[in-house]
Amino acid sequence: MCADRFSLSVEEYLTKKHVLFYIEDCVTQVLEHKEEYTQFGILRFLSEYFNSVKKGNHILFREFSFVRATPHNRSSFLHMFWRCFRQIGKNGDLLSMMEYASLLQLICPDFPEDVVQKAARIVLMDDAMDCPMSFSDFLYAFQIQFYYEEFLESTAVIYQDLLSGKCPNTVIVPTSSSVEQCPRLVSSDTAAHEGVDSFVFCNCVEGLCERFKYSFPPVHCIKEILGNVQRISFYSFLMALAKHEEINSNIGSLPSKAEVLIDPEMDKELEKLIAQISLSQASNSSNSTTTGHKEPIRKASPKKSLHHRRRIEVESDGSTEETDSSEN
């Protein structure tokens, strides 16, 4: 990869990490908030914009079309979701699909429910859709669904074609409608329980990867998953993708499953914040009992600390805070 980038053309090099997309977005941002940037200087804005892109908190409270626009945005969003709601996993709570959708909408107000629904289908193997799910199960299934959305759509088409006995070597164009109907067909079909021949399926998916312009999981991981069994159903395939450690580390936004609840850096900040809040509360209302307040504080803290962090980052520049709220 390292030597490669010098042989790419300028256009190819810039599209690799979507640099022009971010430049376009930051100019749009400047135009949307003109007054603030004339006051604080464009250079400060550019510096803050690209630093937040680098750190991955640029997706906070942005619209869904922006959040899903690039692989970097998607992985930043996944990382943010994990950081914000890790506490739920820690408490061991099981939540329903709609509850996860609400959590996602706290970070991205127009996050569509159908993406959440698709992720829930992976966890629940397209069965008993109102069943509550654990945080880590949902998180890793959601990662696969959200990060590899286009890939999943295309493999669903291949799978469907194989089930109905067609040869899926035709060009696959991912469309939203194809996936919409796909799972229902699978569940109604009696052959769905047996799935398809995994060797044939593997060959087709491999062929897809060769000409696929969106992100897809490493081919050797797919081969590994499909090489272990004779027949496979679509949802067992997705489940295996979601559980695969190497695919997870390849995306690089979530820790390994064993460490999903551990984030010492965040824990330290939380503790600091809780201490601060209880201190200020003690001074504000001396007669309120501490035990009564303990639980609500714990629940609210992850989100609060994020705002807190952003506030520290922007320091003197009061404008960014206003920007956040106006983006909502």
Binding site: L14, V19, Y22, R44, L46, S47, Y49, N51, V53, K54
Partner: peptide, 25 residues
């Protein structure tokens, strides 16, 4: 910034731009 980026061609393009603007500031 783009000229600098294309001259150096780093692997981490977005990180490079972040550092570049921070440095300019």
């Amino acid at each position: 910034a783009l000229i600098k980026l294309l001259e150096a061609r780093p692997d981490d393009q977005l990180g490079f731009l972040a550092d570049h603007f921070k440095n300019q500031l």
